[in-house]
Every structure is written in C-alpha cells, then in structure tokens.
C-alpha cells in the first residue's frame, strides 16, 4: 500500500518538466520582441502623432497633447505671403525633375541594358557612387559656382538640373533592372514586323516597364519634395523658394519657431507624397509580368 502511494506522489514525468522550460523561454523571448516593437512604434509614431495633432491645436508645443481644436493655424498659412506660392514652386520643381529623370532615365537604362559596352557595370557603379556627391554637402561650393556661371541662380531650372543629376544614376540603376527583365524576344519580335526603335520603346518597352517607371517617379518626387540643401543654395528670392526651404523662415517676432504655422504647413507639405504613394501603389502594386520561359 505505501509503495503505491509513493508512486502516485512521484514528481511529474520527465517529459513534462523538459517541456516547461522551453515554454518559459519562449514566453520571455515573445515578451522581449513585443517590448522592442512597442519602443520602435513609439519612436516612429510619436512624431507622426504630433503631426496629426499639433496643426489643430490653438497653442501647439513640441509635446504631443490632446489638441484644443482649431483650424486657425491653416488660416495663418493663407495669411503668409509666400506659403501658397512655395507649394506651387515645389510642384514645378518636382514635376520638372520627374519629367527630366523619367525621360533620360528610361532612354539611358534601356540603352545600357541592351548595348554591350566594355566596363558598363563599372561605369554604372561609379556614377552611383559619385551621384551622392552632386546633391551632397561636399559639392556645395562648386555646384553654386557652376550654377552662378550659368546664370541660373534663383531659377527653378537650376534646382531641377542639379537634383536630376544627383538622382539619375540611382534611377538608371533601378530602371536597368526592369529593362533587363524584359525578354529580348519581345523587341526582336517587334523588329521583325518592321517596328522602329522608338516604336519598340513606345509599344513594348515602356508599357512593360511602367511599374518601374511609376516607382521611379514616386521616388524622385520624394527626393525633390524633401530636398532642402539644393534649393536653399540656389534660390535666394523668397517668392521662388519651394516649401521645404520656406519652412525654414517660419519664426515668430520673438525669434521662436512658429509652431502654429510650422505644424499646419508640415501637414499640408506631407499630403501630396502620401496621396501619390497610395495612387501608384493601387494602380501598379509594384508587380511585374515577365516572359514565359527563357
């Protein structure tokens, strides 16, 4: 009898004990993951929360707080002499750069994808490396001098050209990948029916590479829209300045950053890019249809 009782009181089988330890460890690792993710969300979320609330607060501070609802901040933008004009300037520069980059990028990447020249890849990588210099801080002075000598200071064209020069290598690099994935047989097929190169580009290559072009257009627009340094250097007249530079001038009379104007302006500033992203993503979804089997 005593013997049977001891067996009943014996510790749980070995298997159960072994199983419990990993379960505990699993729980801890899950917990750490969740805490890590939460911190990340806070880090990126709080500025966005500020952007969502501060524009509607009658007395915004740098802290995120439940706003004291008002739309007067947006009215203040209307009162600013340059605010509306700066968005027009931004749009002109953004659209101009997109057109230049898309047209030149499509031609260059198509040519680089199809023509075999020695050192092609080396050339591409070198351009990619140098491109960060063109729009970067290091080339500030020579860029200014060059534009000055061309007599293009205070023009949108100057910004369009300099930013295009800086983004084109990356664009060519990205587009070349798209062009590479278009089977040559498509173009050869069109050639056999007598299509000229520009017809092949128009009827076959561009439609198939359209998701790539759309992606590049959005990416370029983001680059230009948010670019501060280049327009700040090249455009001195306030009425010519794009939104990203104009924001820099929003101070109160006491020399403090005018958070009412800034927050409302920043919200409007970010909307076109977000809308553009959703439109393009919805239209193209960044998918790609290729050939059957090569």
């Amino acid at each position: 009898m005593t013997e049977t009782r001891t067996t009943a009181a014996a510790p749980p089988p070995l298997a159960a004990r072994v199983a419990r330890a990993p379960r505990a460890r699993h729980f801890v690792s899950r917990l750490l993951t969740v805490i890590g993710l939460a911190l990340l969300v806070v880090f990126f979320g709080v500025p966005l929360a500020w952007l969502a609330t501060a524009p509607f607060d009658s007395a915004p501070t740098l802290a995120v707080a439940w706003p004291d609802w008002t739309l007067s901040n947006f009215a203040a933008i209307g009162e600013n002499r340059y605010a509306i004009g700066s968005f027009v300037n931004s749009a002109i520069i953004g659209f101009g750069t997109c057109v230049v980059v898309l047209v030149l990028g499509a031609f260059a990447s198509y040519a680089l994808s199809r023509v075999r020249i020695p050192g092609r890849d080396g050339l591409l990588y070198a351009l990619l490396l140098l491109s960060s210099i063109v729009t970067g801080t290091a080339a500030m002075v020579p860029t200014f001098q060059l534009v000055n000598m061309l007599g293009l200071i205070d023009t949108h064209l100057a910004v369009v050209l300099v930013v295009s020069g800086g983004t084109l290598p990356t664009v060519i690099f990205i587009l070349k990948d798209f062009m590479d994935s278009i089977p040559r047989s498509y173009e050869e097929s069109a050639r056999l029916y007598g299509a000229r190169p520009w017809q092949i580009l128009r009827d076959v290559v561009v439609p198939i590479a359209r998701p790539g072009l759309a992606f590049v257009a959005v990416w370029t627009l983001v680059q230009v829209w948010g670019n501060f340094l280049v327009p700040y250097l090249l455009i001195r007249r306030t009425q010519q300045q794009p939104a990203a530079v104009l924001m820099y001038t929003f101070y109160t009379e006491s020399g403090q950053a005018d958070l009412r104007l800034l927050s409302a302006f920043a919200l409007i500033f970010s909307i076109p890019i977000i809308v553009m992203y959703f439109l393009v993503n919805r239209r193209y979804g960044f998918r790609f249809h290729g050939g059957i089997k090569s």
Partner: peptide, 9 residues
C-alpha cells in the same frame, strides 16, 4: 519565338 514573345500588356 521559343518563348512566343507575346506582349503581356
């Protein structure tokens, strides 16, 4: 062509 080269679009 071997892959037929039909234009996907």
């Amino acid at each position: 062509f071997q892959d037929y080269a039909l234009f996907p679009h």
